[in-house]
Write a protein that binds this DNA or RNA. Structure first.
Lengths: 201, 201, 201, 201
DNA sequence: AATGAATGAGAATTCATTCAT
DNA sequence: AATGAATGAATTCTCATTCAT
């Protein structure tokens, strides 16, 4: 008989597979058409098993959204770890959301699908708020050291909207915008913002 | 009164009611849950009627999206008619998309739902492209007279993304942002853009 | 105002048009898919009108079957009028059902469709029995003068089955059998029957 | 007992039940009114199951027709296995189609329903052709050894039509003809055919 | 853990029929 | 006589979920 640790590992792997498959299915078919059967096929598991692992489709979708969010979080932590000035930190926050790894057609598309599902699931709405607020908070923290509070708040709002808009654009179709171009837009925006805002102290 | 004319009016009214009901249902339940039965209830018409008038649910959704787009178009025409300088025209384009009438929670929410449906319906995707391109073109026309071509193109991209991001934000929940605040963000952005770009002539 | 006779003529024409359209629709789509709307389109009349004229779809189908039957009947009368011996009469009955005008793909196909509808409509079943019995009776009358009663009865049964089978064959697809070939089969069968049966008198 | 084997048996049994129920429903109501719900009720299974097992109603109908055809095929093989001369073989082919087990009101009625559905389903039409050709070929093989080729071909055509006509007759209503009578008709026809055709060799 | 057969509520769609004009 | 908008019951099909194995 297998030791407990091995069993757990196997279980975790199944669940991970299921979450990846969920995202893949949403990317392929859209949330609406990402059915339990299709997800199961991609994951190589039966529908019965999905309910064994996640209880319901909605819980699995929430877990998939969390997986996506943890990817964003990891990227953010990575970028922030390399930044050692407020300006660098602000740039790091933007870069994290527009990196080659994260700012993919797939990611942006799937995220847009979750955005729209927010209307049907309070849990997904909650997760969206958490993600949005984390982005907002990190950016505000950095900008607050570069310009007066009020300016920083406005600049944050604008940058958050700008990045969201870039995600929509990227989600729309493969070729509309590249990560490189998106980063440039955000960076230039930040530069102009800093030039025109009164500096601190 | 001619019976033919009366019948036509009756038909047009039913179709209009159905389209309004479609939008209302999407607003209330999300695209996914805006079923033919619910739409029929809101419109006060039977489900059979939907297929009599539009052939299929999908075609009715496309017609509803077109109705939304014609609202945006009307607003744009109205604003542009009042503008008589390139700068005014650029502002008019932005204001049209962020006006009190258009930049409502309802409109932005429903539009986000259509955005996500783009993945499932080629016709909706086509409509989205038309709308996006019209916005892009009008803004670029105006900005091209205020700054060198290349700058104008970048500025357009940025402003389009910014406005899309503001729509997402507005869609998310009633209170996150007001039309007034959104217009300020866009206007300030434009002002800074003009200050930092080399002027024409 | 139109005279009464003219009105009646107009009404009769509409009804005749509708019956022809019914048959055409059944030929084109099969009974199952010959909907009131499709029939109306072929006839150039609205669905409301169909019910004004026939009360219900089923009644219209029965009327269409009667029209088909009257065609067979006319053909039979015509052929019989030219026959002046028992043998000629027997041949006439067969020829009537296998004539170039009647034994068409269209006729046989539509008749097969009515045959199957017999299961759902007592009225159609009744009509089918009338038609079948008329065929049977006329053939038996003729054959009874050519061979002993018992032989005649058997021969009639056989010939009726043979002709029905030929109709099925013709209904199946355009090319399986020609009227000419069908008539030869029936005639040869009759000849052999007469040769091997004891003659009367 | 292996669970896998058990599941397969369970599945096969359900599918078989569904096919029997399809035939029973067609016999009871006609193809047109043999709805998924009614079939499910007869089979004692839910409607969802029909689509789980067969994908669509049409595919299930095709499978039911194949089941009917395999019954005919079995009967034919059985009869042929007992025949050891060309004449015996010809008789066997006829007897197979007119046996007490096969030539039932139920079978003939259901087959007539499938015949008429041939117009709506290319697959059913294909199956009908296969069945018809098998009958034709087997009969022709036997007759070719009893009379010259050309005679054999005509005799085959005639016998096929005769048997089809007998099926129609049997389908029409319970009492019109018995298997015994049908076999006599076919046998006598064959006898007369052999008498009047030039023999081989 | 895993399977997959079975369920049943709910989805879009079709269509004969009605009815106001 | 004729139209065609409106209805609503019925139909096929989908899909998350359950459950025996």
């Amino acid at each position: 008989m297998k030791p407990v640790a091995q069993k757990r590992r196997q279980r975790d792997q199944s669940q991970r597979q299921l979450l990846e498959a969920t995202i893949a299915a949403i990317y392929k078919h859209g949330v609406h058409d990402a059915t339990v059967v299709k997800i199961g096929e991609i994951a190589g598991l039966s529908t019965g098993n999905i309910h064994y692992h996640f209880g319901s489709k909605e819980e699995m979708f929430a877990a998939a959204m969390r997986l996506l969010m943890s990817g964003i979080s990891d990227e953010l932590v990575l970028e922030l770890s390399k930044a050692d000035s407020p300006l660098e930190r602000a740039r790091a926050v933007l870069r994290a959301n527009l990196s080659d790894e994260l700012f993919t057609h797939r990611n942006c598309f799937v995220w847009l699908q979750f955005w729209s599902e927010t209307a049907r699931s309070e849990e997904l709405a909650r997760l969206e708020r958490i993600n949005s607020q984390r982005f907002h908070r990190n950016l505000l923290d950095a900008l607050s050291r570069l310009m007066p509070r009020e300016h920083a708040e406005r600049a944050t709002q604008e940058l958050v909207a700008l990045v969201d808009g870039l995600w929509i654009r990227r989600a729309q179709s493969e070729g509309r915008i590249t990560p490189e171009a998106a980063r440039q837009i955000a960076d230039h925006y930040l530069d102009r913002r800093l030039k025109t805002a009164p500096s601190i102290g």
